[in-house]
Design a protein around this nucleic acid. Sequence first.
DNA 1: GTGAAAGCGCTAACAA
DNA 2: TTGTTAGCGCTTTCAC
Lengths: 331, 331
Amino acid sequence: MAKPSVTSTDVARLANVSQSAVSRTFTSGASVSDSTRSKVLAAAETLGYRPNALARSLISGRSHIVGLVVAYLENHFYSIVIERLSRALQARGYHVLLFMTEPGQQDKVIGDILQYQIDGVVLASVTLSSQIAEECAALGVPVVLFNRYIADAQASSVTSDNVDGGYKLARFLVAKGFQRIAYIAGQENASTNLDREQGFVQGLAESGQRLWKREVGDYLFEGAAEAARRLLQSDERPDAIFVANDHMAFAVMDVIRSEFGLRIPADISVVGYDDVPEAAWPAYDLTTVEQPVDEMITAAAEILLEQMEHKVVNPAHRVAEARLVVRGSAG
Amino acid sequence: MAKPSVTSTDVARLANVSQSAVSRTFTSGASVSDSTRSKVLAAAETLGYRPNALARSLISGRSHIVGLVVAYLENHFYSIVIERLSRALQARGYHVLLFMTEPGQQDKVIGDILQYQIDGVVLASVTLSSQIAEECAALGVPVVLFNRYIADAQASSVTSDNVDGGYKLARFLVAKGFQRIAYIAGQENASTNLDREQGFVQGLAESGQRLWKREVGDYLFEGAAEAARRLLQSDERPDAIFVANDHMAFAVMDVIRSEFGLRIPADISVVGYDDVPEAAWPAYDLTTVEQPVDEMITAAAEILLEQMEHKVVNPAHRVAEARLVVRGSAG
DNA sequence: GTGAAAGCGCTAACAA
DNA sequence: TTGTTAGCGCTTTCAC
């Protein structure tokens, strides 16, 4: 914005061609002769011309902007998602417009989103209500839910197999012989939390076990720390804790070691979920379930691009495999 | 995009007013009678009308989009910046369009950036060349360099006092009596790295000390780990290491403890820079220098908004205070 | 305060 | 292959 910017008409004048000739040279797949093209490019070069993407979008009906809605980046998992998704889309000529939801008014962003005429939306937040997804879908804007799903909405989704991941963790802990297994939940109504817990409980049940205790951390660092304190301050302690994501697991491990002076895994075992980079750091060395971010991002980008370019509206659902990553924090 | 969307003309027809009346209703500061306004709003409501931001931008010359250019989010510092900046701008009616630079072709994004007619740019990456800043400035697009500066460019900057921060760390380590103080540098030509090192070396010099050894980690996690290995594998070891940012410091601490079996701070002390949240985690408990993110974000947003709204082009430079945060990793 | 009309910079028919 | 023409949806004069 600012400065009297160079338009296609300016270029046309300098190159001695029509304005549409300029437009064509900058539109892939349009027919322009080599001589015209080079004249135009030369003129554009000297004037420093760049097509106005907004004007282009206005008429073409495609903005090449994808809205990404996120609640918070405290959990490193989501910043990785932002980076990868942005790169994947950029490689295909799209860009990411970021929308941070404000706690309590998650649906306020919907207005902003739609005003920008975005071509598609990725909702990467377990805390979002389904309203955004529904409104967008109703307007024919492709929606991909990342790391969650909504039962019967017109929205696509990319998740990992959270039920299976939870199940695998349970089997792992049971095989190690733990008897008092606790769970620290994330946001209670989030699909990730529900699925992980369901798989976990089922895995325990198959060995005749059940959750020994259960606390809620709401996917927050501080929330998890407090949940851990509640879990540990009674006389009888859990011998293993499944924390619903890695981000919370770090908080729990810190509380266990620093505040209660216990050792991991000697005194108590901890397992998490996500396999964020920090989980591999020796200071935590956390046994966890990998959410294959690259694979999930690739899937999300594929679905979105497919729908944006072919106006396909059949929602797709991809479920990536959940892989147990055994490190030193348990057993 | 998609679906035949509702336009202001549709609303006008339903409300029995002219299209311009609709426009005025949605333009703050335009004169519309209460009766017209309510008729328009009612019609807009029933049709689900939302002004097309792109069309508005085309004519008004302001897109209300701010470009944010970042190289990588591996370092948690930058994801925090993204979140806070995005929120700050959103509160003022702007949104962030994200551009990830590809290593080696950092100047390729410039084309994309300018096409989107953004109102301003924030460059939050120490690895960016100054070309983007210059091109944008030349076009009259306000630029704010975040966490770095360019000597005499037409770009504003927000940094913390990196020289002073380095200086404080040096004085701190010297006061603790360390004798063999090493430095693990970030990206060598980055202003943050140059300044931190300069201040650090100066601080040492005032006590007649100099860097005992120096390695380069390039602001990368793996780069830092390798630098640490080089530093530790010789017979004589440093007794303290200043690592140019926290992100690298974590890698260094992991190598010290896990690979060399040394204790921190008993055998070797480590200090970092940034004070990212993880620095406070008990597993690291890192003594570091705080970069006051909130303050810096506020400053960046202020500068940008001021320049975007008043078309001021005098570059501003804000330097936040660097505060030493003493924890347990040193001395 | 309101409507008619012009035009932001561009793409996409349509003829030529 | 080209130029001409008509808009995309909106803001903004300009008369009234």
